[in-house]
Design a protein around this nucleic acid. Sequence first.
DNA 1: GGCGCAACATTCTCGGTAGTATGCTAATGT
DNA 2: ACATTAGCATACTACCGAGAATGTTGCGCC
Lengths: 211, 211
Amino acid sequence: MMHAQADKKPDEKLDSRQQIIEAAAQCFMLKGLEKATIDDIADVLGSTKGRVYHHFRSKNAIYFAVHRQAMQFCFDAVGPVLELSIPYSEKLEAMAVAHARVMMDTLPYQRSIRLGVEIYLRGSTTEAERAVLTELINQRNDYEELYRDVLNAGVAEGSLCVPSVKIAGRVMMGALNGLVDWYRVRPEQSDADRDLIATDLARTIVGGMTA
Amino acid sequence: MMHAQADKKPDEKLDSRQQIIEAAAQCFMLKGLEKATIDDIADVLGSTKGRVYHHFRSKNAIYFAVHRQAMQFCFDAVGPVLELSIPYSEKLEAMAVAHARVMMDTLPYQRSIRLGVEIYLRGSTTEAERAVLTELINQRNDYEELYRDVLNAGVAEGSLCVPSVKIAGRVMMGALNGLVDWYRVRPEQSDADRDLIATDLARTIVGGMTA
DNA sequence: GGCGCAACATTCTCGGTAGTATGCTAATGT
DNA sequence: ACATTAGCATACTACCGAGAATGTTGCGCC
């Protein structure tokens, strides 16, 4: 009943799957990875398990999709910054700002990521799933490497200075991703408010690395 | 059978409970909060559920104990540093070093904390448990406030400079606690190696806050 | 105007786990 | 010496949630 006969928004066609991912991110954020049930996700959509299992083979597969999406948001956000021709110290800070922004803008996804990537799925998973898992972990490493690359270049250039590039990268990820632990969405909060948080955050972090 | 008749180490008397907490921290770190079962914890002790439920009313109670212990480690580590009469910038860095050290030294406890404090226990818990929960959260706030206090004092003194003390506190907690996400215990790693990590980490973080 | 398939809904099973109830044994007070 | 209790082990129950099996509906296509 009341099926897709209408298709009011033709640009939202292949997104029944996307809706599930969105709902899952919401549920994961609110209840945690294990406590969020498939039925919970379906409930958010006003739907049932059937729909979810039609699009995803397993609960893990849903989590993988959420994770991929979250990482994609990050890559999309910092990608443009990487193209800029500015001193590496400025580039690093701009990357941090962009990352902080995307953390706030896609909070449910980013919080889902935090809820135990390696820990979720201990042992008892299929080999295929473990393959996807390592792919996701590699994605995170690749992302962090973007920062380390800029750090290295900045040190070579002389605009950046850190005791250890490796540790500096960890510091950046820790401080930036930590945002999802304490940031709360407030309705009265404007776009400018979020920008202020992002810039203050980035400045505080990168400030210690500029020569 | 083979009960406590021996008591080989008299200094380890009232610690059957402590052993459970230690084992629980281990299990939580390895398998996650929900996936770690009471039987897992008992297995680590070469024991059974009976023992665990003799000392703790519920699984949540065990987690609470682990959490308390973890926070206690932190308070004990930075307490002495707070007494020192040194510039606040130096004090802040010394606190960061101490915190980083305790993160590495009590890794299972600290990792357990990260696995969802607010998320673990959504709704379906007793009122008594929720009271303990808020107590734990307050403990974390109190701990973070130690850092904010030093930051404020440092800014007033002129030895520290940040765009926002509130955000600077978040940055410190995020970067320092993030340590438990990437730090791996290696047997060949010496005490000095850990000290190096701690000092580099602290310097990278606090470096951006010194005037 | 039947056929097949996509996109779900409904219902069931089955394994795993928190918590309980009960049993057992060795100290400990009296 | 006897009862009691602390400190566990063993055996059992109740429940919940992932995934499977199966049913239902509408649309496209020949």
